[in-house]
Design a protein around this nucleic acid. Structure first.
Length: 708
RNA sequence: GCGGAUGUGGCGGAAUUGGUAGACGCGCAGCGUUGAGGUCGCUGUUCUUUAAUCGGAGUGAAGGUUCGAGUCCUUUCAUCCGCACCA
């Protein structure tokens, strides 16, 4: 990746997790907190390894359209995260700026509002700000204050717009006699665009708030169609698709939409040599350095003469040392006595290994590709990768919508570029399904100081602690979390009910994309059902071989129906419906008194239909009832189409849309005849009470509606 | 604020995509078995009225389209999720 320019080192302000003592990528910071530790993230400047995911911003965004079997929600989230915008980048000529800062580069998505500019502002992290703070203590104090600002959602929401005039001026690109003050402002992000903006208070809420606070002019650029210019009480920010009347426009007609005006403004500016149209993305490069032990070592070597050199391929992978201790915070690799020592792959001189390790998302970004050739000496094998890729159906939680799934899409492209995957595999997951979580109630009491104390589900019975009978507060179901103790240990479930019960219950109640609440009663019900199935199996097993019952044909029909319904449900991921169908089929079979061979046949089919949910009991039934080989490898049952056809159908009869009667007729009876029978029906005659029939609608196989 | 989704019995949820609303399960009630309880079996269970039927109402709310609406359209309310100083 280094050779292909996909990996590089840079000095960057990074998100520092003070609990995990490591850096995080932007995506891994949620509401200002580490995605894993939940600690407030700080900003630090460090030299770090990055992957050039941002080179792929446009492609990763455009390719989302092709992922038609991905949930819309995930595609929208990724599109928002990539955050494409089209705008103008240009530079102001400065006046009174230090040497080397005679131009100030800014980016705007609203170049049509250039004549509404009343100030310019730079980020506290902008190079100019950093230069100035070295010479101006007051300004340095202000910048430090800005950097300290909390990064939590609340802090950002309530943060006041603050700025400090640098004394520097910029000249308006269209009229150099107009000078605008340059502020350092806390709300300008270094990460986005150029880290510098021009402020147009009339048409931007942030700029408006700022201009009011610092007494800056607020000239309107456009007004609503059919109105005149008037002092503004708030920024006027209509939809870009809405036509407005430009009073300080400079490109395009007076009456045009924001979109049209932006396009015209970019074209005009380019033609007069003021900047150029630029497409910007919010997506930042992926910072992959971690200062911890648990991650793959970054396979590079630092040599005093050769610099940063990639390790030789034959030495890969670099393995972590086993003799490490975790008694002191920080990176154990840093203080390991010998692991760091190595030879420079280029000149052979003594050198040092990189002690940063890789983000663990690295591993999940390509494991699917490695699975195509798990024992290969190289990362993948071309033939195997071409044969197995892509993943037909990928299943994961919605929490991976951005992190894992975006990294994987990038990594597959990187692996293609480095020759490890074919071009057809750059979108690794053909179809995506996001399943819900298993949730549980939370049981809470308070300690003597009023602090909350949480209790495990097995410590609670009937709303009270088993230990001392104290009542607990029950908080509605939430995602299982160790801190809230609303977790059910899978080993407990398996110990008390078995794995089949756990699987059956988790899939039985809710559609798989939705959360399912784990309840003891629900698990018990599943357990009882499987016990019932086993009892039924035993009963059938003990039937005399020559037993001749009744209704073999009906059972064959019911079996065919079950095969058809349950197969369709499983194929559409409607496992809760599949299980409902299995309940129904079990009831049918329990009540049946057919011949032994028919009963055996039916329960073997039932074992097969159950096997995706409850593989263990399915195999037991299968072998007990004389199934050949493994149930899991037997061909999936196919419903005989002839048995799915009903000879007679029951048709409800509605009168003016209300169901009043029903009739049974042969399946293929002509409509005219059905009408005759319907109108002759005793209940229908009673309801009609002699009134004339205006219209009669017969939907074959469905319903009859009589209109009076 | 922007974007997306979801509202159906006491509860989780079905409804073949415009055609019998409430499948299946939980819970609850009754009966039986056991008999201390639980287990197990059977029956019932949207609400309302009724001895029971018959009937009436009913899919967050209000309108509309249609022979017919949980499903389509308009308005509205509520809840959940994502994003949010992105220039």
């Amino acid at each position: 990746m280094m050779a292909k320019g996909l990996a590089y080192r840079k000095n960057a302000v990074v998100n520092w997790d003070p609990v995990d003592m490591t850096v995080l990528a932007n995506e891994q910071v949620i509401d200002g907190r580490g995605w894993r530790s939940n600690a407030l993230v700080e900003r630090r400047e460090l030299t770090q390894w990055f992957f050039r995911i941002s080179d792929y911003s446009g492609e990763l965004l455009a390719a989302l359209d092709g992922l038609t079997n991905w949930p819309e929600k995930v595609r929208v989230m990724q599109a928002n995260w990539i955050g494409k915008s089209r705008g103008l980048q240009f530079s102001f000529t400065t006046a009174g700026a230090p040497e080397g800062f005679d131009r100030l580069e800014v980016y705007t998505t609203r170049p049509d509002t250039l004549l509404g500019a009343s100030f310019a502002a730079i980020s506290p992290d902008h190079p100019l700000a950093k230069h100035l703070e070295r010479h101006d203590p007051a300004l340095a104090a202000f910048v430090a204050e800005c950097r300290k600002g909390g990064t939590s959602a609340e802090a950002l929401e309530t943060a006041e717009k603050r700025g400090m005039d640098t004394g520097i001026r910029v000249l308006h690109p269209f009229d150099t006699t107009v000078e605008l003050p340059v502020y350092i402002a806390n709300f300008v992000l270094m990460d986005y665009g150029t880290g510098a903006i021009f402020g147009c208070p009339a048409h931007d809420e942030r700029d408006f708030e700022f201009a009011v606070k610092y007494g800056l002019p607020i000239p309107s650029v456009f007004v609503a169609e059919g109105t005149e210019e008037a002092p503004l009480a708030a920024a006027y920010v209509p939809m870009k698709s809405e036509p407005v009347r430009y009073i300080r426009g400079f490109a395009g007609p007076d009456l045009q939409t924001g979109e049209q005006a932006v396009a015209a403004a970019i074209a005009h500016c380019e033609s007069v040599g003021v900047g150029r149209g630029v497409t910007n993305y919010r997506l930042r490069d992926w910072g992959i350095s971690r200062q911890r032990y648990w991650g793959c070592p970054i396979p590079v070597v630092h040599c005093d003469t050769c610099g940063v050199v990639p390790e030789k391929k034959e030495n890969l992978p670099i393995e972590l040392p086993y003799d490490v201790t975790f008694d002191i915070p920080g990176n154990p690799l840093d203080r390991h006595p010998t692991w760091r020592n190595c030879a420079c792959p280029k000149c052979g001189a003594p050198a040092r290994r990189e002690t940063d390790t890789m983000d663990t998302f690295m591993d999940s970004s390509w494991y699917y590709a490695r699975f195509t050739a798990p024992r290969a000496k190289t990362p993948t094998e071309a033939d195997e990768a071409a044969y197995w890729m892509n993943v037909d159906q990928y299943i994961g939680g919605i929490e991976h919508a951005i992190l894992h799934l975006l990294y994987s899409r990038f990594f597959a492209r990187a692996m293609h570029k480095t020759g490890h995957l074919p071009e057809t595999a750059i979108e690794p997951f053909n179809a995506l399904f996001t399943q819900g979580m298993v949730t549980h109630e939370i049981y809470k009491t308070s300690d003597a100081n009023g602090r909350p104390v949480y209790h495990l589900p097995e410590e609670v019975e009937n709303g009270c602690l088993i230990a001392n009978g104290a009542p607990v507060e029950i908080i509605p179901s939430a995602k299982m979390s160790k801190s809230k103790k609303n977790v059910v240990d899978p080993m407990h479930i398996i110990a008390s009910y078995g794995a089949d019960t756990a699987r059956w219950f988790v899939m039985s109640d809710s559609p798989p994309e939705r959360d399912v609440e784990w309840t003891a009663s629900g698990a018990e019900a599943s357990h009882k059902h499987l016990a019932r199935v086993w009892a039924l199996c035993s009963r059938i097993g003990e039937m005399p071989a020559d037993h001749v019952g009744i209704g073999d044909d009906d059972l064959a029909r019911a079996t065919a129906r079950a095969i058809a319904d349950i197969t369709r449900s499983v194929e559409t991921f409607a496992f809760n419906k599949a299980i409902a169908g299995l309940y129904g089929f079990t009831n049918t079979l329990s009540r049946a008194n057919c011949s032994t061979s028919a009963m055996k046949e039916a329960i073997r089919t039932m074992a097969q239909l159950m096997s995706p949910m409850t593989p263990h009991i399915a195999e037991s039934i299968w072998s007990y009832q004389g199934g050949q080989g493994l149930c899991a490898t037997a061909p999936w049952p196919v419903a005989d189409p002839a048995l799915l056809v009903e000879d007679t159908v029951t048709l409800p009869i509605q009168i003016n849309g209300k169901r009043r009667a029903e009739i049974s007729v042969p399946k293929d009876m002509p409509t005219a005849e059905i009408e005759k029978i319907a109108l002759a029906d005793e209940d229908v005659v009673k309801f009609l009470a002699g009134q004339p029939v205006k219209k009669i609608i017969v939907v074959p196989g469905r319903i009859i509606n009589v209109v009076i």
